[in-house]
Design a binder for these strands. Structure first.
Lengths: 231, 231
DNA sequence: TAGATTGTTAATCGATTAACAATC
DNA sequence: TAGATTGTTAATCGATTAACAATC
């Protein structure tokens, strides 16, 4: 019987138990991707974890573990085929599928994100912006219409939008999130420094600039305190 | 001799070994801070880890461990004095000291960050912007001059600038970092999706939007694949 | 005193790293 | 075959959580 089970596991494939990926690996995959794309541009065909690790300052075995999540097997002695690996990472990250998104908050940050054309290379298409400020509504920012916030739920449903980006001011963020939840949006990229309260099925990713600032100012404060060492 | 050493360690205090703070704790401290400031605004005087944990969705003991890094002791039964705790966190993070910074790359993102007035409440004062684009040089963005990139090293030295913010395009980021290193800058907040090569004494914090995007698109792809469950 | 809370020490968990067998 | 590399299993490390004593 034991043989039976192990066989069926091997044969049926893609069974499931995809072995949830660690956050840390997920953060590194885009780095590998970026590295590999550049390598490819320079004509690189094959690559080993040893080399990737050396260039990116990771231990080789960590690179190997990370890449295993993409499901692409490498070849002993030669390593991975660069083109395949790029594909595998993009596939794993969902970067070869289009994600249409709505952005709320057409202020400075919202404008910056709308202007970031590279995102579309990674499947992120921001199709419209929303704002509650009447003076902004009706304008166009980097080719996208700025619509009144009230229109979001209806439009999101009709267009089956699954991703929402919040670049609204802190105080408005929660109510925007509520609107998005109501609109059936499935994931939120939140740039406001608040922990949003949303239904459990909605995935929230917080882009917390204040956490970054903390890390930087803490480091600088620590250095000021310490006596200056010989440079 | 052994006794001697342990005594001196205890007595002299502030000796060192400040027990390096975990990254994760550092990310949470600003959240506590934000929560406590709001609490204070509503007139809260005392607070317990139990309550903080409940409101912020952390386990109480984790909150306690995190807060211990600030060095402020709580009182059994009553918890912490809100005002003291806010102070202690700000002090620990260096948010009550002024950090003057230079920003390089006056594009969309740079403009957004220059426009983010709240940063100054956390000690971050961006005093000038730099760009290599001659059409931008000479203009003012959110009250700050845009200067030619070549002027950065000299000015940074003269003004003892310790923090640099990179919002330049990916290709330019490394050379900007080189310039900053040359200018004696001690910490870099890097918004470009590249791993910068800098001397070991420079602290780099990467704000990696593509890592965030990976996390979001991966989650969405995973949902699309799976059959829709009962909502 | 009883109860809520802090602070601390031990157990658990997950991610990183090390060791090594398998493979081309 | 020898050597570089992958893939896997075990050891290590660090952070989270649990258990509990100390304190007001």
């Amino acid at each position: 019987m034991a043989i039976d089970i192990s066989l069926s596991n091997k044969q049926t494939e893609k069974q499931e138990l995809p072995l949830a990926i660690p956050q840390a690996t997920l953060r590194r995959l885009p780095q590998y991707h970026h590295y590999l794309v550049q390598l490819q541009a320079r004509g690189g065909k094959q690559i080993s974890c040893t080399t990737i690790g050396h260039d990116l300052n990771f231990v080789a075995v960590q690179v190997r573990k990370d890449l295993q999540y993409t499901g692409l097997p490498g070849k002993p002695k030669t390593g991975y085929v660069v083109a395949e690996l790029v594909q595998a990472i993009e596939n794993f990250l969902g970067w070869n599928k289009v994600n249409e998104a709505f952005l709320v908050g057409a202020g400075n940050l919202g404008t910056a994100i709308l202007g970031h054309e590279k995102f579309s290379q990674y499947g992120l298409h921001i199709v419209a912006a929303f704002d509650s400020d009447a003076t902004k509504v009706g304008t166009r920012i980097h080719g996208r219409d700025v619509l009144p916030l009230e229109k979001l739920p209806n439009l999101a449903r009709r267009m089956s939008i699954r991703l929402g980006i919040i670049t609204a001011p802190t105080d408005a963020a929660q109510s925007v999130a509520n609107l998005m939840a109501e609109a059936g949006i499935q994931a939120i990229w939140n740039f406001a420094p608040v922990r949003l309260k949303v239904p459990a099925e909605i995935f929230v990713h917080n882009e917390d600039l204040y956490a970054s600032l903390a890390s930087l100012s803490c480091k600088l404060a620590e250095r000021l305190g310490a006596p200056v060492r010989n440079l």
